[in-house]
Structures are given as C-alpha cells and as structure tokens.
C-alpha cells in the first residue's frame, strides 16, 4: 500500500462498520440481570411527549411568557393617556389592513 488516503479509508470503514457491529452486539446481547428504574422522589418519570394536546392553561401561560416583552412594549406605546397616540396607531393599523386587502384583491381576484 503506497497511499495514506487509502489507509485512512480502510481504517475509516473498519471503524464505522466495526463500531456499528460492536454497538449492536452490546445493545442486543443483554443478559437482563438487573433493571433499575430512575428514582425521582418515589415518582415515575413523566413522559411529556405522550400527551398530544397540552392543557389550555399551559398554552396560555406559554404565550404570556413568550409574548411578555412584546405586550409590554405595545402597551406602553398605546396607553400613554394621550388621544393622539392612540389615533395615530389606529391610522397606521387601518392603513396596514387596507394595503393587505388591496394586495389580497389584486393577487387573488
């Protein structure tokens, strides 16, 4: 053999294939001597992935936590006590809705 690349390739194949065989061998040939459950203060480990739909209260809490900074930002911008602030925000919002409806009508008549 004259090429270090070939040697590296042979070693890589040996390592990957041999490692796979060894891992499968060790994983499959269990003698089943002892099985220990995880001890979590006497309770079994809860699997959160089992429940398809999480409770509504959890979703609300998650949204509140996630959007907390955004909600605070918007609230301090709107609730200034000045009518003009509220009025200018509403104009921007109405303009955005108008543009969206125009785009919607133009793209999908």
């Amino acid at each position: 053999m004259a090429d270090p690349g070939t040697l590296g390739l042979i070693f890589s194949i040996t390592v990957i294939v041999g490692g796979l065989i060894l891992a499968v061998f060790v994983a499959v040939t269990k003698k089943g001597v002892r099985e220990t459950e995880p001890y979590l203060c006497g309770e079994s480990e809860t699997d959160f992935t089992d429940s398809v739909s999480p409770p509504a209260t959890e979703v609300q809490w998650g949204l509140e936590k996630t959007l907390d900074s955004w909600v605070r930002f918007v609230r301090t911008k709107i609730h200034t006590g000045v009518l003009d602030d509220w009025w200018s925000l509403m104009i921007v919002w109405a303009a955005l809705l108008l543009i969206m409806s125009l785009v919607r009508g133009w793209a999908w008549p």
């Binding site: 040996t14 041999g18 490692g19 060894l22 891992a23």
Partner: peptide, 16 residues
C-alpha cells in the same frame, strides 16, 4: 444508543 455507537467507534479505532 447513539452514544454507544460513538464509543464503539472509538474502541474499533484503537483496535485498527
């Protein structure tokens, strides 16, 4: 199992 595979590749690397 993934970790077992990676440790096994280490063992085979030393063997090779």
């Amino acid at each position: 199992r993934t970790t077992l595979f990676l440790v096994s590749t280490g063992v085979m690397a030393l063997s090779a």
